[in-house]
Write a protein that binds this DNA or RNA. Structure first.
Lengths: 225, 225
DNA sequence: CGAATAGTGTCTGTTAGACATTATCGA
DNA sequence: TCGATAATGTCTAACAGACACTATTCG
């Protein structure tokens, strides 16, 4: 079948922007500023712009910048969703991306943004609910055997803080001794010399940061957590 | 930006059809029957047909049927590749799928098909080389901790045969005792009562098949192989 | 000093792999 | 009976998790 006779396909990207708030995974939703679903909360997304984007990842970066006002250090392609019914405008393809950011990076006073817990989401337009579900499932699985959750921490953090992040994402407690052995095994963290988290009525915790080489990479465990 | 002003995006699917031959992963390539790259070997692929496809997976199934003449019991979305340069016709998006089939399902006498070892591929048009590489990497990783390789076996097989398949995919020997423990743990195989592989000068091996409930699912290991 | 949490040492049960042993076929 | 491979038993080393102990801060 020659290409010219084919009806057009709507080509978009959607970003599942995840962050941690109150020890629970949250997704950043965006109030739609056009039809369809004008005014509804949905995933930040938009058309691919063939004139300017070198690929769908560029489009995702642009959407994050324009709609959520941030640059995510971690951005991963999730999956592609398609079909005649998911968008009322017609047959569409949406390449979904998953971004993880420390909560400090999410703009606080942006009226068009809402940060919602992933376990108690409102109804979402399109098939955005299942996109979020798939992203969360992927993040949980990947956190079992990788350094993914460090992207939810800021630049400096203590091991007990990082352990709490793992526990929040995995939804279950993690053995302290094993956890520290694993983090050591990953070889991805470095203590910040002389820097400790003081000010609390207990032994201060050592501050760590991600080694430069691992800033934008994942580190994998042979066996899971 | 209103949709009408955006230049069109070419929307296609490509299928990485993998099988095992001579204890090595092979990919089934298809001789292109149109421009661009007319006559070149490439991944079987084609346009999404919005009138008939309910999603890109339908398009992948159709492509497999039309170009490779088979129905794959295992078909998984791999990733989506996009950009202005990958297809000379213009800015394109290709949703890539990965299929695994027993070698018996690949038509033997189809002149438009070639079965090539994944480790010694010729140059391929588009970005098909990197799509194949990504599919192979994914299959290898997933075989570490799942029942994926059973889809490369036929309906009936012995445990030593299945172990050989795992070893071929993983590229390294597997401990026999552990392997059998793992397969037992997966709870996915059932012995075919009274059926053994006879005819060789040694103790015959028990024949197994995949339990009905697991025919189209993957079974996952807590820890890897 | 006491409360609280960070960080570490150690023990034990579980698991993976090496090796040995037994089983069962054809020749 | 012999050679070959299937299938299983068993021992050991590695690992994960439980628990306890020490360290260090604030009040």
């Amino acid at each position: 079948m020659p290409a010219e006779t084919l009806p057009p396909v709507i080509c978009t990207v959607d970003v599942v922007l995840l962050t941690l708030r109150d020890d629970a995974l949250h997704v950043v939703l965006h109030k739609r500023d056009r039809e369809p679903f004008l005014g509804a909360l949905a995933l930040p997304g938009g058309y691919v712009h063939p004139q300017e984007d070198q690929g769908t990842e560029d489009a995702a970066v642009r959407v994050l910048r324009d709609k959520a006002g941030l640059e995510s250090p971690y951005l991963e392609q999730l999956a592609t969703f398609s079909g005649p019914g998911r968008d009322p405008r017609g047959w569409s393809v949406s390449v979904a991306y998953c971004a993880l950011v420390p909560s400090g990076l999410v703009p606080v006073d942006a009226p068009q943004l809402r940060v919602m817990p992933v376990d108690r989401l409102p109804a979402l337009p399109f098939d955005h609910k299942s996109i979020v579900d798939q992203a969360v499932a992927r993040v949980r699985v990947k956190s079992q055997y990788s350094s993914l959750p460090v992207h939810l921490c800021g630049e400096r953090f203590t091991l007990p803080q990082l352990q709490a992040v793992y526990e929040a994402v995995l939804g279950e407690p993690v053995n302290k001794v094993s956890f520290r052995r694993k983090m050591d095994e990953l070889g991805m963290l470095e203590p910040i010399a002389g820097e400790q988290e003081l000010g609390r009525a207990n032994r201060p915790a050592q501050l760590y940061r991600v080694r430069r080489e691992f800033r934008r990479t994942l580190s994998l465990l042979d066996r899971g957590m």
